[in-house]
Nucleic acid binder design. Structure first.
Lengths: 408, 408
DNA sequence: GAAGATAGTTTATCATACAAACCAAGTTCA
DNA sequence: TGAACTTGGTTTGTATGATAAACTATCTTC
């Protein structure tokens, strides 16, 4: 692992810092960047010149005078290139084309269709590739083109090696996913767990450095950001709070343990709660639009559905309080398909957290994320890796990626 | 937050990297450092010259020739200065004088004695100060003297602000501990939670970047290191896994919640298990030597005690599996007073973890730490802050500490 | 319209890392 | 035994990049 710096490296760090400052504070002038970063005006000018030559940054006109010469305002050239974010789910994939500021330009849903004699892996790959090619073809011409794709996976992946250790429901085990995808998509590809992607997206919009993103879907996973960094763990599978015990003698879980959180806080748990309160006409398995349908029923005032949502909220709250006590974030986000039911579950989540979190963790605000959070985060994997590299990720990866030097 | 680098900063990073390399790989030659860090020989020589002039590093003689000129071996000058580590417990404090390599030179136990009309805070302070002064007076004369003190606290502290949010058992709330101690001890002081200190000590000895340290005593706390960094959370109180629910309908906890792990995995839990299996002559509250006494009984073959330890081990295992699934560390350490019973609890911990952890977390090895781990880690707070500063901690703290420039 | 303020550039300087040449001191082998 | 080679470490010259200070450009104020 390298931990030494030479002048080229110093320049890269500083250039990245300047770029990040523009990215997050645009429109901003050279002087303001210099003040924010406590660097010399001359250095900023020199770096900005490079960024403009590379078309990552553009001058967008003069700002208001503050008693002297008007400042020239700088901004990200958000259409210098594009990236795609992919949210893999059990039944389908969602692919979004985003510009460099992360804004979604095009979006497409593609079902995962398992035809005869085809492995699940092949079906997933085909769906991914088909959807990706569709949105890539929609990308406007630009300096850097489509610079990469980020994939959010609802299972255990190692984002460093690209290995998919386990994908529940589709029952994929130990698959070199990244290699398979790379063989078919000729752009840089990044992958991570879906909850991690969600956390990344939240960080990008909220500019907070300590947060958790709880993805409640068929299973329950947590993306953790502390000190601004995603936590991956040794094998990359950190955040499997869905398989932490909240009831030592509780329900048997598919993982072999008992009383796992996701037995009580997931789509499947919701289905069970509905069965328990006596709702009728239930599917045997949560379908693709299960939550949506339940929300419609609750919206009609169906007390059974409302009660089931409340029970779900309480149990999400129990596990969330655990996560808060363990990690002490600044905010907590609830994401995944369940967000459609945000209004029905949030009060119970909040109440339960208030009763079960300790000390300052009681103050942690719980929010419901937007449905696009994960796909946004997937795109963020690319933007972060290629554009927002900093000291941190250098140390993390051990090798030095090359920010801001994309091939044309 | 500063994220820019100039040549002075570059030098500091590199100097620290060289020092850390010597610290961890001594004895080592200049050439080997250059190869390890992928830096130029000339640069290494220049930095080493400075380190030798400052007496942080010494030349300890020639090594074996590898076909040419013999290398001059470098080593940490471990007696250039000293630091003290303090382990605060409910009934007493343990203070250790350590040299720069972290080796304990002197150790002293001081009771916390509450005399009439004295607040708990005062009693704790007086005990700390008395013990510190005793070991400081034993420090040999050296270039830098006693460079600082690190304090491990069995409660919720913010290591940045020095604020003690809550210290259970002694029932101290919201106290500016660092300020109070600084008023009395005129050396730099660092504080952190006891489990965090334990984790730090383990990291120092094992050179691993992903680990958890579970401190089982009157309560249960976890120190988490991922990517080589301690996790503190937003308010500094991360790691309170003792207050995570493992039984949603379980025992009422002092924190107001139900079924918290520490109700099932702590000294108090052990006492309850003993009551449940019908052991007699039990104290109403775990005394200072409670674990020690229980181990003695178990050593005589007392089946009740052995069974109680096994039950405790199972419940430590349930919570530990949760921690592993949530954080995916490389190894797990059990520390705190319970380590005396390591042989009695470890098999059950391992079995439970094997049954309840998911996927690769099943492979995580569980070890019993030595009793001095926490006090070692407390000393490490000082060594780490003053000597082993690197890119990482810069980003973390946002401000730039000044390593290797101690006043004489 | 002169004085002052702010934005940004140009120029000279300085610190630091690096490369290459060099010196020092060992080993190998004819 | 000594010439050739190898390795460890230093010296010297160079390149890079950040900074400070002087300078230009442009605006506001009075």
């Amino acid at each position: 692992m390298t931990t030494s710096i030479d002048s080229a490296m110093m320049r890269r760090f500083n250039k990245t810092a300047v770029f990040r400052t523009i990215y997050q504070n645009a429109p901003i002038s050279r002087v303001d960047i210099a003040n924010l970063l406590e660097m010399n005006k001359a250095t900023i000018s020199s770096i900005v010149d490079e960024l403009i030559a590379e078309e990552f940054v553009i001058e967008i006109g003069y700002g208001e005078s503050r008693g002297g010469r008007k400042p020239m305002l700088l901004s990200l050239n958000e259409n210098a290139g594009y990236c795609i974010g992919i949210d893999v789910q059990i039944t389908h994939v969602t692919v979004a084309l985003c510009n460099l500021s992360g804004k979604i330009i095009e979006q497409h849903h593609e079902p995962i269709y398992l035809s005869d004699g085809m492995s699940v892996q092949e079906a997933l790959l085909q769906s991914l590739i088909a959807a990706s090619k569709k949105v890539i073809s929609k990308a406007p011409t630009s300096k850097y083109g489509v610079i990469g794709a980020g994939v959010a996976i609802p299972g255990m992946v190692n984002s460093q090696t690209g290995y998919l250790h386990y994908l529940p429901n589709l029952e994929i085990h130990e698959w070199n996913f990244l290699e398979s995808l790379r063989a078919n998509l000729k752009i840089p590809i990044f992958i991570d767990n879906d909850a991690n992607c969600g956390a990344l997206a939240v960080q990008q919009t909220c500019h907070l450095n300590h947060l958790v993103f709880v993805n409640v879907g068929m299973g329950t996973g947590v993306g953790i950001i502390t000190n601004g960094n995603l936590i991956h763990g040794y094998d990359g599978i950190a955040g499997e709070f869905g398989h932490t015990t909240i009831a030592a003698m509780g329900l048997k879980c598919s993982c072999g343990s008992y009383g796992c959180w996701e037995q009580y806080a997931s789509e499947r748990a919701l289905l069970r709660y509905l069965q328990e309160v006596g709702a009728y006409n239930l599917p045997s398995f949560p379908s693709a639009h299960f939550i949506e349908e339940c929300v419609l029923r609750a919206d009609t005032g169906d007390a059974l559905y409302i009660r089931a949502f409340q029970t779900l909220g309480q149990h999400i709250g129990i596990g969330l309080a655990n996560v808060l006590n363990g990690l002490n974030p600044q905010i907590a986000m609830i994401g995944g398909p369940i967000v459609l039911a945000g209004n029905y579950i949030l009060p119970d989540i909040e109440r339960t957290v208030a009763n079960r979190a300790v000390s300052l963790n009681r103050r942690v605000k719980v929010h419901i994320a937007s449905p696009e959070t994960v796909v946004h985060g997937a795109a963020q994997l690319v933007l972060r890796s290629l554009l927002l590299v900093d000291i941190e990720s250098l140390k993390e990866s051990g090798e030095f990626p090359t920010p801001l030097t994309l091939p044309h």
